[in-house]
Design a protein around this nucleic acid. Structure first.
Length: 816
DNA sequence: TAATTCGCTAGACCGA
DNA sequence: TCGGTCTAGCGAA
């Protein structure tokens, strides 16, 4: 961004005018000798404002050194770099007041060399992105209404004034490519369709062959189609462009085709195309003057925090799980056959529908998931483009950086590699899990601590800089079970921020109760509280995260130690009150009612709550009619109970299942379905016989070769480069075979494989689903069906032999 | 190069 | 062919 253009800001002399607009985002630009922050604003339309601004950082040096520091000299590409000026400032460093020097630089890229030149002093806040710095220092909040004054395009003053609903002109888009070689080749395979859909209800398809569809516009050729797409984006004055995997695929492909055809891909407001910004392992496309949001990143984020569970992050899966509908056309088109459909006049119509529908569904998905992202953007004061590609750690960090600035505190530095290694090697003890006794139980109650870790952090003021404070006496401070003391007088930054989040969320949840479920306001408030929940749950992880600026082993281990303390203490109380404690995991407690009533259970909960610290609360999760815990195999020893694996039947007849094979994607559909049916037969109907019959029928179907290959596929992700594995797992072997056969398998791909008849080891038998011709029935019976159902049926005294066919049926085994 | 730890399970690998 | 150990993936919270 150090692109030094001529200043466009010639009209600085005009009178300032007071105005209101929405603040959207900021970046920076260097014009000649000055660095300007460039703000993207929205009035009726998007527009830009500029503000001259000087980058700075802090160094820990006495004021007497100011002159010396001012004359320090660094070099960048042979150019001399000197500080612009040096100011003494009083800040709070690591919880204590401290005099520092604030060193100003001309350009953001002067900061690192200056900091290096002054390496005899400890430096702070030298690697905060400049635009982010500006947003923090000016108290700006994306999507909020601001009052500002300007002279021409130069910003004079700006104040965030209020939160107000904002509507962005949104467009979803998607391209289809000609792919005779499987994967389309950007140098030779054309784009055949571009579809789009806007939130104003407009949608269409651009293509260059007749499709017989009235939503399609037929252009002269591919080049004209790409240019027409740019025109549509411009005419619609798109503010928010959304797509699925558009950063990785659609946009780069559009770019490549545009250059191959001599067309210009003008998507930005300044007619530029897009820029790729590195975001972790991914690249994220940035379109000038608009917000580009690739929903793939958001879906992945939702997967990481556990808000979404899918085997593969495809648009189809995300749409099903998040929008709650089945895709209208996905099943009608096979990706690999797209080129044939394009060439076949009869099928082109269907392809057009499919493409058009992709954009419509992408738009629907965006409308479902972007509200939460927009709330995260506001709360963390991070522009939406950055939020959609942020990790939980970055969001938490943003919030803490803002709070630091507001409280005159210095942001702690990021750890160096050595420090990171040390932190990683030095693991923090986590939660407590009680070993359950396997069996089927009746009448259970499950309690859990609401937001256990966040509430512990707040209740005990856990923060790196309240640790071992000198402000309060030993007796007054919070003493953790591990012996760490936290100040009881001065609230730490982390508890302060977290308390704000939790109180905000509590308020929103109250508000939610009073709103009609179908109203827009309900949806808005729901998104807000969801965003706060995501953040609250991330704080403990951030404290214990090795690359965290606010890492503290003492804090992390105190949080978990208090967690173990409260859950085991509550379990002991339950035991004393006459309940049987069946199972415990982290923050939840499973009790057998026995001869106690539900009222007794609720009274117990009330009593526990009266004894807990203010912010902590035990909640009723639910009462259950039946529950089942199973055994696990222990090599060499007798079997014991399995943790993290149970099934519960609630009073409405719904089954809640955790940990069983049937919730795992690395088991075949046939095994998962059979296990699910068996579990239902036992928990709901109490019929062992029915369960046994289900298993027998499945085994027979497998032996007779009646089970479709799709039901036999196991889905597993490869997480490394194929060459870097020490062991050849079935999925790796299958992937290697597929690569050899010319199929494109990217690293991190989810491999769907089937165990076939040919080969000796299981790996040798593993073949990717699309290439598999047959299946090894015996493998599926012995390694998929029996282990998964026996886990359950053994509790009822059923043996392996009871499930396998006997008498006249045994002959079949030899036959197949 | 981007939140944590606890826990289960499989299949490969290795030595007897 | 066996049993123990290791690698790897995924889920619970």
């Amino acid at each position: 961004m150090e692109n030094r253009g001529k200043s466009p800001l010639s009209d600085e002399s005009k009178q300032p005018k007071q105005k209101k607009a929405f603040f959207i985002s900021a970046d920076y630009h260097v014009y000649g000798e000055r660095t300007y922050v460039r703000l993207l604003m929205k009035g009726r339309r998007f527009f830009r404002l500029y503000k001259f601004c000087e980058p700075y950082f802090y160094i820990d040096a006495p004021e007497s050194q100011a002159q010396k520091i001012l004359s320090a000299c660094a070099f960048d590409k042979g150019q001399q770099i000197r500080p612009l000026r040096v100011e003494p400032v009083a800040k709070i460093l690591f919880g204590k007041e401290k005099k520092l020097l604030k060193v100003f630089a001309k350009y953001p890229f002067h900061v690192p060399p200056l900091k290096d030149t002054l390496k005899e002093y400890q430096a702070y806040e030298f690697n905060i992105p400049f635009a982010k710095r500006f947003i923090i220092d000016n108290g700006l909040e994306p999507f909020s209404l601001v009052t500002y004054s300007r002279r021409g395009r130069i910003l004079d003053s700006i104040v965030s004034s209020s939160a107000r609903p904002i509507q962005l002109r949104t467009m979803a888009f998607d391209i289809e490519t000609y792919n005779p070689a499987g994967v389309p080749r950007p140098t030779q395979d054309p784009i055949i369709m571009i579809s789009y859909a806007t939130n104003s209800g407009k949608s269409g398809l651009l293509t260059w062959r007749d499709t017989g569809k009235d939503f399609a516009s037929i252009l002269k050729g591919e080049k004209e189609m790409i240019e027409e797409f740019c025109r549509v984006v411009k005419d619609e004055d798109v503010e928010l462009m959304v797509g699925y995997n558009t950063s990785q695929f659609d946009l780069p492909y559009l770019q490549a085709r545009a250059s191959a055809l001599g067309a210009k891909l003008s998507l930005g407001r300044d007619k530029s195309s897009f820029k790729l910004a590195q975001r972790g392992l991914r690249k994220e496309a940035k379109i000038q003057g608009r917000i580009h949001a690739d929903l793939y990143s958001v879906v992945q984020f939702l997967g990481i925090i556990g808000a979404l569970k899918v085997s593969k992050y495809t648009l189809e899966n995300a749409y099903r799980e998040l929008v709650g509908k089945e895709s209208a056309t996905k099943s009608l088109v096979k990706k690999l056959a797209i080129w044939q459909m394009w060439d076949d006049e009869g099928q082109r119509k269907l392809l057009a529908e499919y493409s058009h529908n992709d954009s419509l569904e992408t738009l629907e998905l965006a409308q479902k998931i972007l509200p939460v992202e927009m709330q995260l953007s506001r709360i963390t004061k991070t522009p939406l483009f950055d939020v959609v590609s942020s990790t939980t750690g970055q969001l938490v960090e943003s919030l803490l950086m803002r709070a630091s600035f507001e409280h005159n505190q210095i942001v702690p530095n990021k750890p160096g590699e050595q420090e990171i290694r040390q932190r990683t090697a030095n693991m923090i003890q986590g939660a407590f899990v009680k070993l359950p006794t396997p069996g089927v139980y009746e009448n259970l109650v499950v309690f859990d601590f609401r937001g256990l870790y966040p509430s512990i952090i707040c209740s005990h003021n856990i923060d790196p800089y309240t640790l071992n404070c000198s402000d309060c006496g030993k007796e007054e401070s919070h003493l953790s079970p591990q012996g760490h003391r936290f100040c009881s007088k001065k609230k730490g930054l982390i508890p302060l921020v977290l308390e704000g989040i939790m109180e905000g969320r509590a308020g929103l949840k109250d508000k939610l109760k009073k709103l009609p479920k179908e109203s827009q306001e309900y949806a808005d408030v729901f998104a807000q509280q969801q965003a706060l929940k995501i953040l609250a749950n991330s704080y403990y992880g951030y404290l214990a995260y090795a690359r965290s600026r606010w890492y503290s082993r003492a804090c992390g281990e105190s949080v978990t130690a208090w967690g173990r303390h409260y859950i085991t203490e509550t379990a002991a109380k339950a035991q004393d009150a006459g309940f049987n404690v069946l199972y415990i995991d982290t923050d939840s407690l499973f009790l057998l009612l026995g001869n106690k009533t539900k009222e007794d259970a609720l009274a117990f909960m009330k009593k526990v709550n009266s004894q807990l610290p203010e912010r902590m609360e035990l909640e009723l999760e639910a009462f259950y009619l039946r529950g089942m815990f199973v055994t696990k195999k222990v090599a060499g020893e007798g079997d014991t109970g399995a943790k993290k694996k149970y099934a519960l039947l609630d009073e409405q007849g719904r089954i809640k299942i955790r940990g069983f094979e049937l919730v795992r994607r690395d088991w075949s559909k046939i095994a998962k379905e059979t296990q699910s049916r068996v579990l239902n037969a036992i928990l709901k109907e109490g019929s062992k016989e029915k369960a046994i019959q289900i298993v027998k029928d499945t085994i027979q179907a497998l032996r007779e070769g009646k089970v479709p290959l799709e039901d036999l596929a196991v889905y597993t992700q490869l997480n490394k480069d194929p060459d870097k594995y020490l062991i050849t797992s079935p999925e790796l072997a299958a992937a290697k075979k597929a690569i050899k056969a010319g199929k494109a398998i990217d690293s991190e791909a989810v491999i769907a494989f089937v165990i076939t008849k040919s080969g000796a080891s299981i790996s040798e038998k593993a073949t990717v689903l699309e290439m598999a011709k047959d299946y090894d029935a015996n493998y599926y019976i012995e390694h998929q069906i029996l282990p998964s159902v026996l886990k359950i049926l053994r509790e009822l005294g059923v043996t392996e032999d009871d499930l396998k066919f006997k008498g006249k049926q045994t002959g079949l085994e030899g036959f197949f």
